[in-house]
Nucleic acid binder design. Structure first.
Lengths: 260, 260
DNA sequence: CGCTCTGTACGGTAA
DNA sequence: TTACCGTGCAGAGCG
């Protein structure tokens, strides 16, 4: 049970024994194949050495074995795979269960097929932490609002308006409403558009003066031009790792200030 | 040479023989591991059953073996991997060659390790065709501009302006400049913003009346609201597969019309 | 290189 | 569900 099953250059018949593991254990099949995809779009992939990966959650991946980070074809979970042996062809089919979308892989030759025991570490859900994300920038601003400018007071995060959801909203030293758009990496033209949408929406909804500040480590020339044109500002800020604990400041909501 | 090499639950020493294949042949290592990433951001991943994939182009992928389409960690090509055996730990290190970014994987236990022969099908570059993309919508419009509206005349694609790159630019039956923004799937608020950017830019650059039309199979409510507010239009169009040949119509450039 | 944009984007979250 | 948005987005294409 808790065993690795490996088939080196298996006969079609041997392969069928692995079909039982699909959906239960991780299954890998490497070989020369062609592939078709039909769903939101359609694709055809000619013969090449590829690696098929079937995860127990239903995820299906077909990778070119020689290059590229992105799979040739795929089905995100929830999906289901099945294996069929036809003459000299091994057919691996994957279907999404929530959307009408499928991938069919035709293996002309299978070099390797195996399945792994599902048991992982102690906890089944593995821990994963990411640092220096936009979330970290947000925390940094809450703890030290002066990184935006002296006297800035954040009031609320993820504030919905008619035009979308603003990252951070607060007030400047002169009591003007300020909308922040945060970007963890260099900001392009779309960031300027996004911020403009929010600023316009808040101006219309609240009928008061509103400043918009793009907060990012750097911006492109196109972005700078647009910000200028729209009368928006930019503050340089690098994303940094912040510890996840102490968030217990402020926590006053926008409506406490706006009285909505 | 043209052989599959497989090691089932290998000893560290056996594993070292596979290190030679890194960068030359596709290498797979499955086992219980932890991982760290450092670069544009940082991450830590706790113990879990994972699958490491090293492709000959340098691509490195570390997948949770049980779930998710997206890898836990990765390095796109160009990158380089190395394998090191330390006591009871197998350390797989991957470094990008163009950017300062690395992933380190600590295997507590290796269940399976193998490398595949690099030989694929006849042609090393495999054929891949995708249909029903935005590109196909573009072709459809060039062949039958009436899908936009009677009398529409496309003039040029991918037209750069100060605000970005417009998908298609042409003229309507009344001789007004028209900017099209194409979306292969349901369009959201950002599509409206994008189109607005281009329309404003063309108005300013050309000083004439400009219409903007969003072309998509459907749009969200938020998108519809914004289009209305900005005075922009929407035409329903589904992406369809088109054949890649006969494109030999028109091909007149915008400057032929605008005289720039 | 940098900039802009598409993608079968994926994935998370909130209404 | 739908909508919106972040992502270590990746990858393509152009200047």
């Amino acid at each position: 049970m808790a065993e690795v099953r490996v088939l080196k250059e298996p006969t079609p018949r041997e392969l069928e024994t692995l079909a039982r593991d699909l959906g239960k254990r991780p299954v890998l099949i490497a070989g020369i194949c062609e592939a078709e995809y039909r769903g939101r779009a359609e694709s055809r992939a000619g013969p090449a050495l590829r690696l098929a990966i079937c995860k127990p959650d239903g995820t299906f991946l077909l990778h070119n074995a020689l290059e590229k980070r992105e799979p040739t074809n795929w089905n995100p979970a929830p999906s289901r795979q099945s294996l069929e042996v036809r003459d000299d062809l091994v057919v691996l089919r994957s279907r999404r269960l929530d959307v009408k979308e499928e991938v069919i892989v035709y293996f002309h030759r299978v070099l390797l097929a195996c399945s792994l025991p599902k048991e992982g570490a102690r906890s089944e859900r593995s821990v994963f932490s990411l640092f220096r994300s936009e979330e970290d920038m947000k925390r940094l601003i809450w703890r030290n609002p002066d990184v935006i400018e002296p006297g800035f007071q954040p009031v609320r995060e993820e504030v919905e308006c008619r035009a979308g959801i603003a990252d951070v909203v607060g007030y400047d030293a002169d009591g003007r409403l300020v909308v922040l758009e945060l970007k963890r990496a260099r900001a392009g033209v779309d960031a300027a558009s996004q911020l403009r949408r929010y600023v316009e929406a808040f101006r219309e909804e609240r009928g008061e003066e509103v400043r918009g500040i793009l907060v990012a480590p750097s911006i492109t020339d196109g972005c700078r031009r647009l910000l200028e044109k729209y009368g928006l500002e930019w503050r340089r800020l690098e994303p940094e790792a912040t510890d996840r604990d102490g968030k217990g400041d402020g926590q006053r909501t926008l409506t406490d200030y706006l009285g909505d």
